Simulated scan of single mutants.
Amino acid sequence: MIRLMTIILASASLAACSGGNEFAGGGDILTIHGEIGTTDRGAMQPGLEPLFNAYGIDFDSAHAMPFASLADMPQHTVRVAYPAGGETHSFSGPLLRDVMAGAMPEGTMLTITALDGYQRDIELSRIEDHDVILAIRMDGDALNIGGFGPAMIVWPRDTDEALAGMDDSDWIWGVFSIEVN
């Protein structure tokens, strides 16, 4: 009986928080840190933020972005084959340069970290020169943890001639941290 009640309560909690496949809890899904001019949260707390700790990410202050803030920004759509040569999908979210502008970056290099530990350095100028989006939806549905979520860097390689033939190396899915250096 106790096990059944636990399952019922857990299911009800998950259903209440699902919000149509979006992060209804309002927690931050992206943290921008490093050489930035705008901060709205304090230092990384190793005991409470084990993912940052596990990947050696440390900061004294940061700019945090919940799903709702990203969803409230002007949304852009990129229809593109992903992975390269795969099916075409419709990705939507704010332009990454607009997301970064909110943090007022003072450096020129971004270190983007994904949930699986994949890290990629990308020059900020590349983000500014192309309509790269921080996708939070694919084919209309929120990007989920366990899939490509909570956010994914998507390049318009099918419509931007300068990106033609681009491989998937800079297509980071599961993005949760961006450090500005």
Rank of each mutant, 00 (worst) to 15 (best):
S61N: 03
V78A: 11
S90N: 14
D58L: 10
Q45V: 14
F52Y: 13
V78H: 07
V78D: 01
A84T: 14
P50R: 11
D72K: 03
L51Y: 12
P83F: 15
A62Q: 07
G86K: 03
P74L: 02
F91T: 02
G93R: 03
S92K: 06
Q75S: 10
D60R: 15
A64Y: 01
A62R: 05
A43L: 08
L48Q: 12
V80T: 15
T77N: 04
M44S: 10
Y82K: 01
P46T: 10
Q45R: 15
M65Q: 02
S61I: 10
D60T: 13
P83H: 08
G93Y: 07
L95R: 08
T88I: 11
G85L: 11
F91E: 12
E87W: 03
G47L: 07
S61E: 04
S61H: 15
E87T: 06
G85R: 12
P50E: 09
R79I: 02
F52E: 04
D60C: 14
T77V: 13
G56T: 10
V78S: 01
R41C: 06
N53P: 01
S90A: 12
P74T: 14
S61G: 11
G93V: 12
M73A: 07
Y82S: 09
A62C: 09
R79C: 11
P83S: 13
G47I: 08
H63T: 06
G93A: 09
P94V: 04
G85P: 14
A54Q: 07
V80E: 07
F67L: 04
P66W: 04
P94M: 04
G42P: 05
A64L: 00
I57N: 14
G93W: 05
H63W: 11
P94I: 08
Y55D: 03
E49F: 06
F59S: 15
A71Q: 10
G86Y: 01
M73D: 01
G47V: 06
Q75T: 02
Q75V: 00
F52I: 08
L48T: 09
A71D: 14
A62M: 00
T88V: 14
G85S: 04
M65E: 12
H63D: 13
P83W: 02
L70E: 00
A71T: 05
M65L: 10
